[in-house]
Amino acid sequence: MPYNFKPSTLFIGKKIIFLPSCHSTNDELVKMIPETGGDSTLEGTVVVTDQQTAGRGQRGNRWEAEPGQNLTFSLLLKPTFLQASAQFDLSIAIALGVYEALGEHLDENQLRIKWPNDLYHLHPAEGNQKLGGLLIENTLQGYQVSTAIVGIGLNINQLIFPVPQATSLRRITGQPFSYDLERLLARLLECLEAEYLRLRQGGQQAQKARYLARLFRYQEWHPYRSNGRLFNAQLLGVDETGCLALETTGGLRYFGIKEVEFVI
């Protein structure tokens, strides 16, 4: 797909590079940034592919998608206003942008952000299934973020998955024909830009409140696993570094990403 459709944005997606196939759109975008500073690469540049052969999730986890069926893209941002220690705010803004775009097609009561930044669909019969996720790679200079490569993978038209925990937009809605990936990408970029500008204008408190309101299992008691031990806890929120706050029977505890597992 050539991706000639232009989003109505100020800067995100003004330049869209389509690659029929590539290892990872994040890596392709990194290659386009010159080593010396990177100012010549346009903020908002998007790399999109029909087939990502070595997509990544959390360090080491692979993310596979059927060619031409889904949206796999990366976006270059230069959030130089952001302190390195406050970068979870960017993760929140991006997750909200994706949520808003998908929310136009889905029942928002069934669409949830799973901490830290996956998109989940709460299926009444099939349970909770992953719709997509994102992965952000930053470059830091001193204590500031200089560039952020935002990689987003969303299952859109794929109908059959090798694992029961995955789903797609079309699978959920049952739409008889395929979604137009170009149009969907344009809408995603518009929503992402709107959230990014909100963040840039200092709107992170309101964004965090919206993130929590859309967070999977927020203020509910569910099982979790940490260090091989199974326990029940109530999800109370996230701290400023993005750690998950769980109220356990032993009190309030904070967990990093590798320290806790959702038992779903």
Binding site: Q87, F88, N117, L134, L135, I136, E137, G242, G256
Partner: peptide, 8 residues
């Protein structure tokens, strides 16, 4: 790395 955010 923190919270699926990778920082060079």
């Amino acid at each position: 790395e923190a919270m699926k955010l990778f920082n060079e």
